[in-house]
Each structure stands twice: as structure tokens, then as C-alpha cells.
Design a protein around this nucleic acid. Structure first.
Length: 840
RNA sequence: GCCGGAGUGGCGGAACUGGUAGACGCAAGGGACUUAAAAUCCCUCGAUGCCCAGCAUCGUACGAGUUCGAUUCUCGUCUUCGGCACCA
């Protein structure tokens, strides 16, 4: 064993040994309980960043810990490898996206291995490989069969300069993220997944997500956005047509003084000339503006037959509800503003409690209250009236009670090359025809030119494009859109259950592992990826592929990795070395230092994991990132903190080095013969095992678990054994410490384990057990309070009776001086901990 | 606006179901070893006051409340972060 700890040698050695021995491979084992530990797979950008390191370090600790606890642990890794960056690289650097992607995968895989993560690489998947995406296509066909995939015209974000559709996330301040030109709404035929069919189920299922952070569940509920309300028909004066409106406030129906319809509503088009309407459409969705155009028509309120004007308004959304609303300015702030602008009447029909409303409203009154001026409904509370008016309208055939969701169907078409081809063929005669299952996969052609112009390059791939119709054999053309990459990641967790050369939907494989016991990833996926995966899981269930409802039993959303930033008023973000004692090296201005921000290239506060590994080794990086903050909170990177972690590992190395010759059988320790120091160390060791174990079990509190290990080393460090049994205690203590350290810093733990004389891997050891009796202190500190204030600390025997504790406290000299001449009203005793004497 | 968090030393963070606030680490200061430095080891380290070996008072964003006792529970206020946002 070397005197100096050299992480590079140690880590490489064990990575090779583990990999050679297939130490991280897992097969179904009915003897052991299974545990599926999964971290969100990365996009292969080419280099891992600290966010990955943190995410995967957390996952690796859990996987290794569970393994030592006797679980059969599935811990796979793969690549979310379709997507825009590969295509952009192709356009910019003339590299084929496939080449670029697979090279990135290779280099990132190497980096992950250098971190010592325990993945079963036999199960690796890359979503861009035909053997993976053929199942995207297969699922797409199943969706089609079940009417869960459909095509419709819809408005999409369109960048005219790049000639492509943009996802909402790619539109920043209404401009294209790439070329900065203004994004317009364009109507296109797109494929959609009918996620709305599962809206209620996905909402109800939220109650099953007991192992998820509350805020993620709240965000999902919010996104689904269920609201209960009423649809009501307003007749149009002088017309047979009606306007159907949606409201969640039927209790305010008598206060409606006008009706608003969306600019894209068919009736707007009918009543208003297109040239006038287009101006309104142009400001659709502009939160700053509330504008409308009078249609010249009047609607009839179904409850009081009142005639009220109909406006087309920019703030009414066509996609939500019925695209038409009744406007009640007295009780809705938006309607109030609109009414003020266009001089429309405001009428109060709700009062709060018994007080009258002010004569002139300054803003809408949106709370519930009691109804007035509302015919037979007057006097009711808002909630009573909502029910009664709903029933009344239903009874008269003028409306119905309904539920609306904010959730929209999921548009999955992308006019992009680097994605899964949608398996559909268009034929003049047979229209859209699904590609027969036997013809899957539809392979993405490789021979493509990337110009960066003109939408999907697949349009120019004539061999790909022109095919025979599978139905009639006539000439036909393929769908050239590819799928949103979120489709790929909506079921990859099922794919890992089988080794990759097998069919992904063998029940035996899926049921052996799913649902995922612990999923770990960033909060940024709180809605989209996690919601889509829940949706897919339910569809797959309905396809009979398995019978569980939820894919992820427990979810841990780790915090971001942050670092302090340097900012110059002139030169924006600076690298630390660009700041010379607080002034900018470029212009000499004062640098604002210390704002802690998420690591990002643009803020110039990134740390490259590779450099850190070279300098400190993977174990130190792992240790620091697990110690500096609990997993779910943001982590502030600190170079000095890393040094501290390195120091800790060095101390362990030195201590084991010093004592590695002390190896002895430790089965029977004669407790009676131990020196007081050894007895203390034995106790501390058992206490540490208890603390580390419970800290990991309880919400993965790795930071406090590591702190406990540091306390233990602080106690081991000055210890010198006297007798042979003392020596046994030391060895027991060191072994326990190494085993507990193993999930966090696997390489050094394994190395030192061998140095202490073991010939088998530390990871085949069972997690150490503690003994409550041996962990017990033989004396306790009894705290004495007087009127709640700390006045004395007494040392007392364990198991002291309450009466004796009180007696002991009252007899203490210091305590006496506080209570003489005062009346004791009460003595409170907390068993074995505290006595509080209440005096007046 | 709605929903969800968070506020504790110079800093990151501890404190189980109300019971010694500040574990552990970082930084800082002092000391030992050394020709010197690095490394290592030891000590101090919330604030204030004092007839300082010790003791007292204050202290977990702020203000109330419940309690023998509150970082922890209740109500109100402020600050801050994240998500959604003209969803009728």
C-alpha cells in the first residue's frame, strides 16, 4: 500500500477491475427483492457538466447502498440522442448528426466511467438507434389504432427565416432562439397525441404520487388545470344561431352586460370583415392589451332575456372552453377593464355579507358573496347559486354543467431530420395509411444534405419519400415529419428492463423491475417529461403491456449546481481571473462579485468535471457534491470545500495505512477488558452506523450521513489501542467506516478494504449493523432549566427515574441559588434529558 | 394574481414526533513541527456586557399567540426564490 493517496491510480484500477468482472451487471434474481434506481438520461452534448455529476452521484450512492442492503439493483444508463443540437452541428460543421452523436456518446460514456458510476452498460440504449426508435414507431401505430394519435390543422410557432416550426421553449420573447427573427403563428397540419383523454386520470393519479415532492405534484395538477363550470347558450338576436359560452361563475350570470368571442371564432369571421379582424388577431394573446370590435349583433341572456352587445376580443382564447365568454365587469377584473375602455355598463349582482357595494366600483369584486338582483336566485350564496343556475340551465335545455382542462393535446410533429420518422404514408386514394408493423422500422435515411434552410431535409430524400401505398400499391409519399424527442423519453425506462437485443415488451422483464423505485433528475422536467411519461405508461397499460399505473414510485428532484459570479457593468459576466481585486481587467470598473447563479457558460461560472477529476479524483468530487448540501437543495460549488473533501479522504488513507497491519479476527470482542477509549470508540462506531443508516433511509440525507462519518474519523484518529481487544475495536471501527463510505467514494473504499486484508469486493459485503445496547451512552447529560432557561447541566446515570432526576436537580448548588426564597409551582421532567423547574 | 418552497454565525449547512440552537465542513485567528514553505497536528471561533479561570443578557426575517418550554405549532407582516399566468 502506498503511503500517499493517489486517486488516479486507485480509481482507474478499480474501474477496470469492476468492469472486467461485470460487477455492475444485473439479471433477474427471484431470491432478492428488486430495486430499480434510475437517473434521467442525458442528451449527448459531448461533455458532462456538474449537473450530470451531481445527478448521477446521487443515483450511484442509492444504487450501491441498496445493493449492499441486499437488493437486486437495476441501474442502467442511456442516451436521449435525437434532437436539434446534432442537426445544428451538422449544418454548422458539415458533420453528419449520427457521427456527431455517436462520437459524443463515446466521450461522455468515458467521462461517466471515470466518475465510477455503477451502470449495467449491457442495457444501454440510444434513442437514435433504429432498434430503439422502431418501438417509438410501433407505439405510434398503436396510438393510431386507438385514436390516440390524430392529425389536425393548428396554429404553431413558425420562424419564417429558418422555415421551421419551433417548440414553445424555442421561442424567446416572441423571437426565434436561433436567428432572432419574429415568430409568427402559422396554421399547419400536425400530428397530435390525445393526452387530454387521460386528463382526469392523470389528475386523479396525482394522489398516488406519495413519493414525489409536493411541489412537483402541485405543478402537474396546475398544468392539467381542471376547472368546473357551466356552458350556456346565448341566442343571437335576429338569427337562428347561438353563442355557447363557458363560465366558472354562473352565479354572476345576471350581471353579464356583454359577450366576448375570440377573434378566430367562426362568428367573428361571419360578422366582422377580415381586414378589421386581422388587426385583432395580430394582438391575440398580448397580455398588455385588451381590445375588441363590436360585431353589430346582440346576444340574449338566457336567464333574463336581456339583450347585450357581442364583441370580438383579443383576450378571449379560442382553444379554451368554447372560445366565447359572458362578460361580467362587476365581478371579473378583465371584463371590468374592457367595459371601462369601451364604455359598457357595470352591474353588481353579488354583495359580500350584509354590506352594500360602493356606488361606483374601482375594480371588479371577484370574491363570493350573496346574490342580489338575480330573480329567484337572489339571497343565495355564490356556491349555492352556481349549482342552482347550472341545474336551471340544464333543465331548460339552455346549457350544461361541464369540466374544462387547461391541458392541450400534445403536438408531436417536428419538421426536423434528427428524430424518429413518423410511420405514415400518404396516398391520393387511401389518404393517410399507417406503415404496416412488419415494415418497421422506418429507417431514417443517412444520405442527406444539411443546409439549414427549408424545413425538414427529408423532403429532398427522394428514395425515402417515394414509396408504394401499403393499402392499394399505388404511388405514395412518406410523412416527412419526425417525432418530438419527448416521445423517445416517455418510455425508455421500460426499455432498460430488457437487455437491448430482446423485445422491449416482455411482461416478465417489465414486471421484474417496474415501476421505477427511485427516479432522480432535475426539477426542469417537473411537468413535460414526467407528465408525458405518466401518460405513456397509462396508454401502455391499456395496451395490455403491463398493469401498473404510474411509472415512478419515488421521485427525487435534485437542486441545481451553482457558483458565484463576477459581473462588470460594462463587460457583463466575467471569468474570476478577469477580476483584478474587484475591478474589471478590461475597463477597471468595479466588479459585482458574489451573486450565486446556476452554472452556465454564458455566466462564466462553470467548472469542468474532467479537470476536477484529473486534479482531485472522482471520489473527492463525489464526496463534496454529496456533502455540501442535501440532494434536493441547490448546491453552491466551493473550491475550498473540495479541498476539505480531499483532506478528509487523505486522513482516512493515512489512518488505514497506519493500522493496516493490525488485522485480526474481530468476531469476539471482550467488552469488559476494553480500555475506556476503546469502549468509547466502539460506542461511537455503533452510533455512527445507526446515524448513517437512518440518514440515508430517511430522504437520502447524505450530507448529514457524511458528517457523521467525519465525526467517527475524528474519534478514530487519536485512538491508540492498548490491549488486543482494543485493536479489534479499531479494526471493527475502520471496517465499518469503509463499508459506509463505499457508496459515496467507491474507489478509495475498495482500495482500503483490500489493504485491510480482504480479497473480496467491499460491495459484496452486507451493510454494517448496529447494536442499540452497544450504542447506548452510560451517562447522560441532564439539563436543568428554571422557568425555561438553561441553568445547569448535570451528569446522570442512564435510566434515571423522573422523581430522582427532579430530586437531583433540586439538590444542585447552582440550581439552589436560583430558587431559594421562591415558590416552586411545578417541575417538568423529560425522561433522561431535562428538568424544568417553574418558580414564581 | 394563483400555486409551491425558503429565510438560522463571516460562509455551506445541523437540530428525530416542541425539550442543551449552531453538529460537520469551509474561512479566519493563535500555537506546534520546519532553516523556511507546503503538508500535518493542537487550540479559539454567534453578539454584547462585566469586579472576564467564570458569569449574565440577547440571539433562528419581523410582530403577536399557544406552552413549564417554540428554529419547530397557530395567526399576521416583510423579504426572497421557483412554477403557472387574459384558462373566463
Amino acid at each position: 500500500m502506498k503511503e500517499r493517496y493517489e486517486p488516479k491510480d486507485v480509481e482507474l484500477k478499480w474501474q477496470q477491475k469492476w468492469s472486467g468482472a461485470g460487477a455492475h451487471n444485473t439479471d433477474i434474481d427471484n431470491e432478492k427483492p428488486s430495486f430499480y434506481c434510475l437517473e434521467m438520461f442525458p442528451y449527448p452534448s459531448g461533455k458532462i457538466h456538474m449537473g450530470h455529476v451531481r445527478n448521477y452521484a446521487i443515483g450511484d450512492v442509492i444504487a450501491r447502498y441498496k445493493k449492499m442492503r441486499g437488493f437486486n439493483v437495476l441501474h442502467p444508463m442511456g442516451w436521449d440522442s435525437f434532437g436539434m443540437p446534432a442537426e445544428n452541428a451538422a449544418i454548422k460543421n458539415k458533420v453528419h448528426p449520427a457521427k456527431w452523436t455517436y462520437e459524443n456518446i463515446e466521450s461522455m460514456k468515458m467521462q461517466l466511467n471515470r466518475m465510477g458510476f455503477s451502470y449495467d452498460w449491457r442495457r444501454e440504449v440510444a434513442t437514435c438507434s433504429p432498434e430503439y426508435y422502431r418501438w417509438n414507431q410501433w407505439l405510434f401505430l398503436k396510438f393510431l389504432e386507438r385514436d390516440l394519435a390524430y392529425k389536425k390543422k393548428s396554429f404553431v410557432n413558425w420562424c419564417g427565416s429558418c422555415e421551421t416550426v419551433l417548440a414553445n421553449e424555442q421561442v424567446i420573447d416572441n423571437r426565434c432562439w436561433r436567428c432572432d427573427s419574429v415568430v409568427v403563428q402559422k396554421e399547419l397540419e400536425q400530428w397530435f397525441f390525445r393526452i387530454t383523454k387521460y386528463a382526469q386520470e392523470l389528475l386523479d393519479g396525482c394522489d398516488e404520487l406519495k413519493g414525489w415532492p409536493e411541489r412537483v405534484v402541485a405543478m402537474q395538477k396546475n398544468w392539467i388545470g381542471r376547472s368546473e363550470g357551466v356552458e350556456a347558450d346565448f341566442a343571437i338576436e335576429g338569427s337562428d344561431e347561438k353563442i355557447r359560452i363557458y363560465t366558472t361563475r354562473p352565479d354572476t350570470l345576471f350581471g353579464a352586460t356583454f359577450v366576448c368571442i375570440a377573434a378566430a371564432h367562426p362568428l367573428s369571421t361571419k360578422f366582422i370583415p377580415e381586414e378589421k379582424l386581422s388587426g385583432l388577431k395580430a394582438i391575440y394573446g398580448d397580455v398588455e392589451k385588451k381590445e375588441g370590435i363590436f360585431t353589430g349583433r346582440y346576444a340574449v341572456n338566457p336567464v333574463n332575456n336581456e339583450k347585450i352587445p357581442i364583441y370580438a376580443a383579443n383576450f378571449v382564447l379560442m382553444e379554451y372552453g368554447t372560445g366565447a365568454i359572458m362578460s361580467v365587469p362587476a365581478h371579473d377584473q378583465r371584463d371590468f377593464e374592457f367595459a371601462k375602455k369601451y364604455n359598457l355598463p357595470v352591474r353588481t349582482v353579488i354583495v359580500k355579507g350584509k354590506t352594500d357595494m360602493p356606488f361606483e366600483l374601482k375594480e371588479a369584486f371577484e370574491d363570493d358573496g350573496y346574490l342580489v338582483d338575480s330573480a329567484q336566485f337572489s339571497g343565495m350564496t355564490s356556491s349555492e347559486a352556481r349549482q342552482s343556475i347550472g341545474k336551471f340551465l340544464e333543465g331548460k335545455g339552455l346549457g350544461k354543467v361541464t369540466v374544462n382542462y387547461k391541458l392541450r393535446d400534445w403536438g408531436v410533429s417536428r419538421q426536423r431530420y434528427w428524430g424518429t420518422p413518423i410511420p405514415v404514408i400518404y396516398c391520393e386514394k387511401c389518404r393517410a395509411v399507417p406503415v404496416p408493423e412488419k415494415d418497421l422500422p422506418v429507417i431514417l435515411p443517412e444520405n442527406i444534405e444539411f443546409t439549414g434552410k427549408g424545413g425538414s431535409p427529408l423532403v429532398d430524400a427522394s428514395e425515402f419519400l417515394h414509396v408504394k401505398c401499403p393499402a392499394c400499391g399505388g404511388s405514395a409519399r412518406r410523412e416527412t415529419d419526425t417525432m418530438d424527442t419527448f416521445v423517445d423519453s416517455s418510455w425508455y425506462f421500460v426499455r432498460y428492463c430488457s437487455k437491448k437485443d430482446e423485445h422491449p415488451f416482455i411482461k416478465e422483464n417489465i414486471n421484474a423491475w417496474m415501476p421505477v423505485h427511485q427516479y432522480i433528475g432535475g426539477i426542469e422536467h417537473a411537468v413535460l417529461h414526467l407528465l408525458y411519461s405518466r401518460f405513456f405508461t397509462r396508454v401502455m397499460r391499456d395496451l395490455g403491456l403491463f398493469s401498473f399505473n404510474e411509472p415512478f414510485e419515488n421521485l427525487l428532484t435534485q437542486g441545481m449546481v451553482c457558483k458565484e459570479t463576477y459581473r462588470c457593468p460594462e463587460h457583463e459576466w466575467l471569468f474570476p481571473e478577469e477580476s483584478d481585486n474587484g475591478s474589471c481587467v478590461h475597463c477597471g470598473r468595479d466588479v459585482e462579485k458574489g451573486r450565486v447563479e446556476k452554472m452556465s457558460k454564458s455566466k462564466k461560472n462553470v467548472i469542468d468535471p474532467d479537470e476536477l477529476i484529473n486534479r482531485y479524483g472522482a471520489d473527492t468530487i463525489r464526496l463534496f457534491s454529496l456533502f455540501a448540501a442535501p440532494p434536493e437543495k441547490d448546491l453552491e460549488w466551493s473550491d475550498q470545500g473540495v479541498e476539505g473533501a480531499a483532506r478528509f479522504l487523505n486522513r482516512i488513507w493515512t489512518i488505514v495505512n497506519k493500522n493496516s497491519s493490525a488485522v485480526s479476527a474481530i468476531e469476539h470482542i471482550d467488552i469488559q477488558s476494553l480500555s475506556p477509549q476503546a469502549a468509547g470508540l466502539l460506542r461511537k462506531t455503533h452510533q455512527t452506523i445507526r446515524k448513517v443508516t437512518t440518514d440515508i433511509e430517511r430522504e437520502y440525507h447524505f450530507n448529514t450521513a457524511i458528517a457523521a462519518l467525519m465525526e467517527l474519523i475524528n474519534e478514530i484518529s487519536p485512538f491508540t489501542p492498548i490491549s488486543g481487544d482494543d485493536k479489534k475495536v479499531l479494526v471493527f471501527s475502520l471496517r465499518s467506516m469503509l463499508m459506509m463510505l463505499a457508496p459515496f467514494t467507491p474507489h478509495i473504499a475498495e482500495e482500503l478494504w483490500q489493504a485491510m486484508g480482504s480479497s473480496t469486493s467491499i460491495f459484496s459485503e452486507a451493510w454494517p449493523k448496529w447494536d442499540d445496547d452497544l450504542a447506548k451512552e452510560n451517562e447522560v447529560e441532564l439539563v436543568v432549566q428554571i422557568n425555561g432557561k438553561l441553568r445547569a447541566k448535570l451528569s446522570a446515570p442512564v435510566g434515571l427515574m423522573d422523581d430522582d432526576a427532579a430530586k437531583m436537580a433540586l439538590e444542585d448548588e447552582a440550581v439552589k441559588s436560583f430558587i431559594t426564597g421562591k415558590e416552586i409551582k411545578k417541575v417538568v421532567v423529560v425522561k433522561g434529558r431535562l428538568v424544568n423547574i417553574v418558580v414564581v
